[in-house]
Amino acid sequence: MSKKKAPPNEAAISKCENGRQPATRANIVTESPKAKKVKLTKQMICLAHLLVGSLNKLEALRLYNDTCLNTTISQLGDKGYNFTKKREPHVNRIGDTVYFMRYALTHDSAQRAIKALSSLSNNKGAQ
């Protein structure tokens, strides 16, 4: 006999610790009746969050369920995006210190990401 999970508390998931809302397909690219449906990739959602601020693996997991942020960052790097990286400590549940990498877009890459995401939004309504 399997136990069913209780539905998530919307108030608990509406905002994360840093005040950002979790990314969803609906709140990154707005829907209009004539808009063509566009499936947002994990990379697009990551770029949208990186435009708001920096991310580490724990935040990416909490915000949009990215379990391997380093791979997403690497894939974005292969597409020409550049990042600043900073190693930061985190104390885990048993009191040990572990380290996570914090990623942020460089200024030039942030400008490029804005253009890429806004063209996505503009192209949706055009068709």
Score class of each variant (00 low, 15 high):
residue 4 K to T: 10
residue 5 K to Q: 06
residue 5 K to I: 05
residue 8 P to L: 14
residue 9 N to L: 06
residue 9 N to A: 00
residue 10 E to T: 03
residue 11 A to N: 15
residue 12 A to Q: 07
residue 12 A to W: 07
residue 12 A to P: 03
residue 12 A to S: 12
residue 13 I to E: 13
residue 13 I to K: 09
residue 13 I to S: 10
residue 15 K to G: 12
residue 15 K to V: 07
residue 15 K to L: 04
residue 16 C to W: 07
residue 18 N to L: 09
residue 19 G to L: 07
residue 20 R to C: 14
residue 21 Q to T: 10
residue 21 Q to P: 00
residue 22 P to A: 00
residue 23 A to D: 15
residue 25 R to M: 13
residue 25 R to E: 14
residue 26 A to Q: 13
residue 28 I to F: 05
residue 30 T to R: 14
residue 30 T to Q: 09
residue 31 E to N: 08
residue 32 S to A: 09
residue 33 P to L: 02
residue 34 K to P: 01
residue 36 K to A: 10
residue 36 K to T: 05
residue 37 K to S: 08
residue 39 K to L: 08
residue 40 L to G: 00
residue 41 T to K: 12
residue 44 M to E: 01
residue 46 C to W: 08
residue 47 L to E: 00
residue 48 A to H: 08
residue 50 L to S: 03
residue 50 L to M: 00
residue 51 L to A: 11
residue 51 L to G: 01
residue 51 L to R: 02
residue 52 V to W: 11
residue 53 G to P: 02
residue 55 L to V: 04
residue 55 L to S: 07
residue 56 N to I: 11
residue 56 N to T: 12
residue 57 K to T: 12
residue 57 K to D: 01
residue 58 L to G: 12
residue 61 L to T: 10
residue 61 L to F: 09
residue 62 R to N: 14
residue 62 R to P: 07
residue 62 R to S: 10
residue 63 L to H: 13
residue 63 L to N: 03
residue 65 N to W: 08
residue 66 D to Y: 11
residue 66 D to M: 13
residue 67 T to S: 11
residue 67 T to C: 15
residue 67 T to Y: 13
residue 68 C to H: 10
residue 69 L to H: 04
residue 69 L to E: 06
residue 70 N to W: 07
residue 71 T to D: 15
residue 73 I to M: 09
residue 73 I to W: 01
residue 76 L to M: 12
residue 76 L to Y: 00
residue 77 G to I: 05
residue 79 K to Y: 06
residue 79 K to F: 01
residue 80 G to D: 02
residue 81 Y to V: 06
residue 82 N to W: 08
residue 82 N to F: 15
residue 83 F to T: 01
residue 84 T to F: 12
residue 85 K to S: 06
residue 86 K to P: 06
residue 87 R to F: 09
residue 88 E to C: 08
residue 88 E to A: 00
residue 89 P to R: 02
residue 91 V to F: 07
residue 94 I to N: 12
residue 94 I to Y: 10
residue 96 D to F: 10
residue 96 D to W: 14
residue 97 T to M: 05
